[in-house]
Design a protein around this nucleic acid. Structure first.
Lengths: 376, 376
DNA sequence: GGAACAGTTGAATCCTTTT
DNA sequence: TAAAAGGATTCAACTGTTC
């Protein structure tokens, strides 16, 4: 493909690390390791990677010097017939780790041919696995020879940058909402990419392993926020870019093959971003602004001296002017007193305590909601 | 446990490899690596292994009701590093390979904590992966903190002794018959081991990680013939032995802990071999799979931003990306919003809401039916 | 006797901010 | 940096009790 404003040529190998500005919503042509090494470090929120898994599997286990590995004690830390693939894997995962923000996370998809190499490398490189996700295909290709089980799934690994770097995005509530109000599980049932969604060039598939948009939809809805940057180092025909654009996220695509880039570019251009109401990103409860109980007293929503009850009216406590409670000699915050009267180690005072209004018990959390609504 | 005719003491480390006769249908007490090295080479048909997962649990975990989760904190699951775990893995997999017949196969079960280490080691040791099998738990433990996807599955790797040594057993027709006459897939839905099947000592579970018999039933039905020898190097409370005996197969169990051996021995003694007729598998009736509304959005059957109507077009609501609806400031699931706009306590959103296609109103339930049809 | 309800439990790498 | 505090968080299956 000729140069266009949407396609960047790969940075030369000599490019200084981090000297290239992040090419937002563009496809960069080139080797993903070189390109990633040219990007600014800690600059992307999430990486989605669908690496190749074409391996030379028939070789026997040999070291680089061609001696055969036979012992127990030296097999596990030596190169093997998988050496070339492992080397490639470590290189791109290392480059990916550099460009990933400390609060970022990475997704890698694969099958049993390569996923154990990838998972092993991720762990060795100090990534921290969050989940392994099973994409259960509703319409897999059958096993024609009847020699094994129908290979009906692929595996995705979702990992944070390291064990002590938390802060990764997980839209728990959105996932739960998408799953009829029960937690989203680690096994996802989705059809393979077929029909109109399957991109063609003439009457041939544009790409051998095009992933369904539904898969990326769930990945991005789960682990990114609107405006986040998603890097895909094996961009192919651009499923990641198409879904990112639709969902109001930014993408950076890296791809070597001109033919794929061309198809991906056309595809993404045709995608429209959903409007903001439809996007409807709701802040998780954990991320909402903190409202001290004292504010409710301060504003007169709750009067000092008033009595609070639990939902069964088994426990009662009186409100003091400073926003603490007192019950049976126990003084402290709404949480501490709630925990103590029940003899529990912890308690969410917001949902535990109620005020009595016209004979009805109203959780004090409704006042907090009022205050938050004012704050937008 | 005292010596008995059913329990053998481990062979001494100096025992010459292969000098011990195969202890058929017995539990050998000792370290599995030493014991396996003392057994005759190429003597067992199938190995089933449930090694420690190296879960690296830190603090105690509590449920939302403040009760404590009884996690796996046993000494046998503690390893100092990945290196230590890898070393252990290579050792036992090497010993296992020696006792396995050339026509044999091996099963190893694990979770994301260890399965990538195991899979990597299997490949490096020249085993040949036949399938990775997903045990989808119908009743997994939820994620109590809302931080990740519910960890709802475990992975089994099924591998032959090497790429050029075929001849492993796969009972294709039995598997197909067990699965309503369609090929058995690589994902198996089975409940966890609970209820009466769960072995207890007093009121405590006998083993932290007892596997369900249904899982071993399928493994052995798929990959062994009557009379075959199945070796389990991490025998625990003997699920492998119990199912092997029931199915008319022979087992060899290796276990270190006296307490587990005692429980396993009693359990297996109580098992009766099924008569040949009873070996026919009774099919459990499949329930209608639940399809979340979010799936329709994810798959593009319904577009975020699209408007839904009731059959009389009296009410309207817009679809958001996470599969919730919004109508007149009311947000929530298709059921919740349907109920609220009507002022009713409840509503079946599937039949209430419709999409407009070419001037016709189509209930959204038709899309759910489409998805169910794909799932069979 | 059976329905309804309350209680328990499972291989889990399960929090974040302020003081 | 360690300790304290705020406050967010669960699903399906089985067991046992009550009405």
């Amino acid at each position: 493909m000729a140069n266009s404003d949407k396609v960047k040529k790969a940075a030369p190998k000599t490019a200084k690390a981090g000297t290239i500005k992040l090419p937002l919503n563009k496809i960069v042509q080139g080797d993903c390791i070189e390109v990633m090494n040219s990007l600014p470090e800690k600059s992307v929120d999430v990486i989605f990677a669908d690496p190749p898994y074409n391996m030379q599997l028939k070789d026997t286990l040999t070291r680089p010097d061609n001696s055969k590995v036979d012992g127990v004690h030296d097999a596990w830390d030596q190169f093997s017939s998988f050496g070339a693939y492992d080397h490639f894997t470590y290189e791109w995962l290392t480059a990916a780790r550099r460009v990933l923000k400390d609060t970022g996370s990475i997704w890698v998809i694969g099958s049993y041919h390569n996923i154990f190499r990838v998972g092993n490398a991720l762990q060795n490189l100090d990534y921290w696995i969050l989940n392994d996700i099973i994409w259960r295909k509703s319409n897999p290709m059958p096993n024609f020879r009847g020699t094994r089980f129908t290979n009906a799934h692929e595996t995705l690994i979702w990992a944070g940058k390291s064990a002590d770097k938390s802060g990764y995005t997980f839209n728990y509530d959105a996932m739960k909402a998408m799953n009829d109000d029960t937690q989203m599980r680690s096994d996802w049932v989705l059809p393979i990419c077929a029909g109109k969604e399957r991109l063609k060039v003439g009457d041939k598939k544009a790409h051998a392993t095009q992933k369904p948009e539904a898969l990326l939809y769930r990945v991005l809805m789960a682990s990114t926020k609107p405006g986040d940057v998603i890097l895909d180092p094996f961009f192919g025909t651009g499923t990641t870019g198409a879904v990112a654009k639709k969902l109001g996220r930014n993408f950076v695509g890296i791809e070597r093959e001109t033919d794929y880039i061309k198809v991906a570019q056309e595809r993404i251009t045709a995608v429209k971003k959903l409007d903001d109401e439809a996007l409807g990103y709701t802040l998780s409860k954990k991320a909402q602004p903190r409202v001290p109980f004292g504010n409710l007293v301060e504003r007169g929503m709750i009067t000092p001296g008033e009595t609070l009850y639990d939902s069964n009216k088994r426990y009662a406590a009186r409100v003091r002017t400073d926003g603490t409670l007192i019950a049976e000699e126990v003084k402290g915050s709404i949480h501490q007193v709630g925990a103590r009267v029940q003899g529990q180690p912890a308690c969410n005072g917001w949902t535990f305590w109620h005020v009595e209004k016209k004979g009805e018990l109203l959780p004090i959390d409704v006042f907090r909601q009022e205050i938050r609504a004012e704050m937008h």
